[in-house]
Design a binder for these strands. Structure first.
Length: 290
DNA sequence: AAGAACTCCTGGATGC
DNA sequence: TGCATCCAGGAGTTCT
């Protein structure tokens, strides 16, 4: 499940492989994978052909290739998406949906996605003065992630505290702060000893800072591990996730002892998914807001 | 209008 | 063993 660190590993790997190269041709074999590109597969291919990739950028879980005509090829990996660099002629992956070949006939870029929540689209870039950068149109409403220069912790704390909801819902809301998914939200809450349903309004500014700091630290640690093991000849989202899994404190550890107090970790349904917490370290608050 | 629920999707794991 | 059900969850859409 690619969250910010996994997407950043893909971004940096991709940058090495595609920056400066010119697109020769595009094959879309599953229209759903470009469903957000409303003009359709033919338009998608036509607009990419002949374009040169200038850079590869990211905000939260979105990543995009800036093109030489001011537009961007935007990608979201969803649950299971992968962007792979493969030699031409290499056997097609079972869930290969989009293939992009370059004029130098070197490795081709492949979008592979089993569960098809992810997708590609072409969009104009829009200027964000406050963030000091250009982002694709549909990334405009996504808040800066904690690693962006434009990230404003004071503003995040202010907005978060004024909300009428629970803390985990807020952490997962990409319009407030981006990059955090279910795994890192649970990890940050465990580190801060907070219940996921604690009302946002109950947080003081220093408490928000502490929690966001933990989320940032966990993502940075994941990135450091994923990044160092990214040495293979292709970009693989799932390839390096196993090692970091072993250092998670709560996520996926149902019934295993809490690493702080020994109590069994519990799994609870939340927002059509699961939340993991320690029932001792992360007590249910009296004014819980599910 | 903010906040919550619903929806999309596949295949590995689990249950009977 | 085989069939059915559960489960993973990011984000756009729809609802209240």
């Amino acid at each position: 499940m690619p969250e910010l660190p996994e997407v950043e590993v893909v971004r940096s790997g991709l940058a090495r492989w595609v920056a400066g190269r010119t697109i020769a041709d595009v094959d879309v074999t599953l229209a759903r994978s470009i469903r957000h590109h409303v003009a359709g597969p033919t338009d998608f291919a036509d607009r990419l052909r002949g374009r040169t990739v200038e850079s590869v950028e990211r905000r939260g879980k979105f990543l995009w290739l800036t093109l030489d005509d001011g537009e961007a090829l935007l990608a979201h990996l969803g649950m299971s998406g992968q962007l792979l660099m493969q030699p031409q002629g290499e056997l097609d992956e079972k869930h290969l949906h989009v293939r992009i070949r370059f004029t130098d006939a070197g490795r081709e870029l492949r979008f592979v996605d089993q569960r098809t929540f992810g997708g590609l689209r072409i969009e104009p870039l829009v200027r964000e003065p406050w963030a000091g950068r250009w982002v694709p149109e549909s990334v405009h409403h996504i808040a800066p992630d904690p690693f962006e220069p434009g990230f404003d912790l004071t503003a995040v704390a202010k907005r978060l505290r004024s909300r009428q909801t629970g803390i985990k819902r807020a952490l997962l809301d990409q319009r407030l702060i981006s990059g955090i998914g279910n795994i890192y939200a649970d990890e940050a809450l465990w580190l801060a000893r907070r219940h996921f349903a604690r009302p946002t309004s109950a947080f003081t500014r220093p408490q928000v800072a502490e929690l966001v700091g933990h989320a940032t630290d966990v993502m940075a640690a994941a990135l450091a591990q994923g990044g160092t093991s990214f040495d293979s000849l292709y970009v693989d989202v799932n390839g390096s996730s196993g090692y970091f899994e072993r250092s998670l404190n709560v996520y996926g550890r149902e019934a295993l002892p809490c690493r702080r107090c020994g109590r069994g970790i519990v799994r609870e349904p939340f927002m059509n998914r699961s939340s993991f917490r320690c029932p001792q370290c992360q007590r249910t608050p009296p004014n819980a807001h599910w």
